[in-house]
Design a protein around this nucleic acid. Structure first.
Lengths: 168, 168
DNA sequence: TTGCTCCTCACGTCACGTGAGGTGGC
DNA sequence: TTGCTCCTCACGTCACGTGAGGTGGC
């Protein structure tokens, strides 16, 4: 059922794929066959607002791949699960909301770990600058050509074996 | 329609309220009246697994407040929105999932701001200890009776802020 | 002309709700 | 006995799917 989507025929197709999926390309008899439904049923669904195919300049319905996909979902809900059309409408709407919520959750998870990472980094940064400060003022100035800052970590004694963390 | 829930009659009622809402107390004729449905319809819904009232020792159905609430929701879905029972089942399940997802989101939001707060605190703490370090060693020893230590955490260098754990 | 499109109308089927009918225990 | 409960069976209604019938443009 998903072969068409997975088999772009050329690089150009690949680039336009997203757009193509929304483009009205199937006339009603073809769409009905692909969705395994009666053409008249498709007209009925449109009248009820369940699906809105494009129209050709001659007023012929043109169904996109996404439309067909949606029709198949509706077909599953009615034929297999026994929903009526009012149920289909409600379910599609709820699923939309649920997908959004789940996307929100995924997004928040990503943001949270990013935040955590940046915060840890920040603390590390402050700590490092703190250690650097412990080198007596002027010490480096007294040594001609000395390379202070970078590898510093000088006053290492107080360095903690900071890979032993994470316990608890 | 929610008056009953909002008007506990005593402190004792208040305490047991949650439990009470799940207790089977209405026989079918009462539950049907409360839900504005036909008793036979309630039996039908039970046969379809949409509702599961308790039973008395004599096998009489006993509906709880929660049951009645649920019946009213089903009644709304069928009568007003026109769903059939298959639709009702699916919608109830989806709503359950959606509520969970939204609870997750709320929980994550709280955790995120808490985390942010704690991180900021931690950075502030490290920064403070860093400033304290800038006081020359021995400075306080030289001043008889001087009150150094407290906010200082003096030879802190080797001290690790070992409450700043847990990040990653 | 053939085979598609558009539309509307009508019928068959099925789900659901409810009524009836018969039973049994407070 | 009355009024509830339990159950099953059957019918009316309505939604939905689909077929038919008539139209019009490639």
């Amino acid at each position: 059922m998903t072969e068409k989507r997975k088999r772009p025929r050329s690089a150009a197709d690949m680039a336009g794929q997203d757009l193509d999926r929304r483009r009205g390309v199937f006339m009603i008899s073809v769409a009905a066959e692909l969705a395994e439904m009666h053409p008249q049923t498709l007209r009925m669904y449109e009248a009820r607002g369940l699906i809105t195919p494009k129209r050709s300049p001659k007023n012929t319905r043109l169904y996109s791949q996404d439309d067909v996909e949606r029709l198949r979902r509706i077909q599953r809900m009615t034929a297999q699960e026994g929903l009526n059309l009012a149920g289909v409408e409600t379910v599609l709407e709820l699923e939309r909301q649920l997908e959004r919520a789940q996307a929100d959750i995924a997004r928040m998870r990503r943001r949270a770990s990013e935040l955590e990472r940046r915060m840890a980094e920040e603390i590390e940064r402050v700590r490092r600058s703190f250690k650097a400060e412990l080198v007596p003022y002027g010490a480096y100035d007294a040594i001609p050509g000395a390379q202070a800052p970078n590898r510093v970590k000088i006053p290492v004694e107080r360095t903690q074996p900071d890979r032993g963390r994470d316990s608890r």
